[in-house]
Amino acid sequence: MKNTFIGLATAALVALTGASTAQAQGQGLLDTIITRDSLLCTGHNGSYLGFAEVDAAGAWQGFDIEFCKALATAILGSPNKLQVIPVSWAQRFPALQSGDVDVIVKVTGWTQTRDTELGLQYSRPYFIGPFYVMAKKELGATGIADLEGGVFCVNAGTTVERVLTDYMASKGIQYESLAFEKGEELRSALYAGRCDAIAGFGPFLSATRVEAPDPEAYQILGDVLALEPEGIVVRQGEDDLLDVINWTVSALLMAEESGITQANVDEIKANPPSPTIARLLGVTPGVGTRLGISDDFAYNVIKAVGNYGEIYDRTVGDGSRYKLPRGLNNLWNQGGLLYPLVLD
């Protein structure tokens, strides 16, 4: 998503590399991954709250990392056949083009330039990234409009600044903006009472609130400043790999929709309640071989990382320190925007 640090340089590099991409295309990337028996997925150069973190033992954790694990399991049968390559925001597209990574799972927004000029291809969104405003509770605001004339703190030079400006201009709300270079400075300013509200990416706001001296003093307002659909990214032309990614994400969502969890997947596989679920878990063969992977890929994935809801809960949701509400990232029948594809 954010941080356009040397973004121009990246774009130029990628443009430069566009030509040489073709040489790697004699064999599909999916076959290359299977031959290599390991999937190269993006990490972060540091930790990115809730999405790609390093734990005390130096192992990768987080929402994005779970999706890397799910893909490794779908293609190769085991979450351990994953190699996480640390890359910075600026480095992710060149790293993909040069083959340092096979896929980008790095809260990467689906924008037109990236989709076309940078020669990338996006999966269906696996996360809907909302930008929110978090305000001091004592102000009693129920929406952003109630904060007219207040001091809004944001990170300098990020998407957030633009998104907030756009939103406020369209609603005609007057406000004062204070920009900070680093997340830490922004937090300190908020805790010190210099800001009435801060705007930012949902997970960041949640983390800021959880870590506050008094978390109850702040509330995230319901108004969504902007949405950024985050997709998993592959190089243009890797259709086989993209199919696998889309159907893996879909399988995770379908598992949640049908109540299949990491704990009960064996039970359900032994006695599938419906023909669709029998197909999903590979009891009725077909779904995997069409993709060029094993028929029980969905079973393996659910066994390894759980369904979409479990992943969410464990890494950024109620089971984590961030307590990020499901909101738009819920299933369609729970008031969210996510839905599985049709498995026939």
Binding site: H44, G46, S47, L49, V54, S88, A90, Q91, A207, R321
Partner: peptide, 22 residues
């Protein structure tokens, strides 16, 4: 760190980049 190496400074940033020790 900008090209994805975890030298001591990047490791320090990784250490504080989680909810618990942020």
């Amino acid at each position: 760190t900008i090209i994805g190496f975890f030298e001591v400074m990047a490791s320090g940033n990784a250490a504080i980049g989680n909810g618990e020790w942020g």
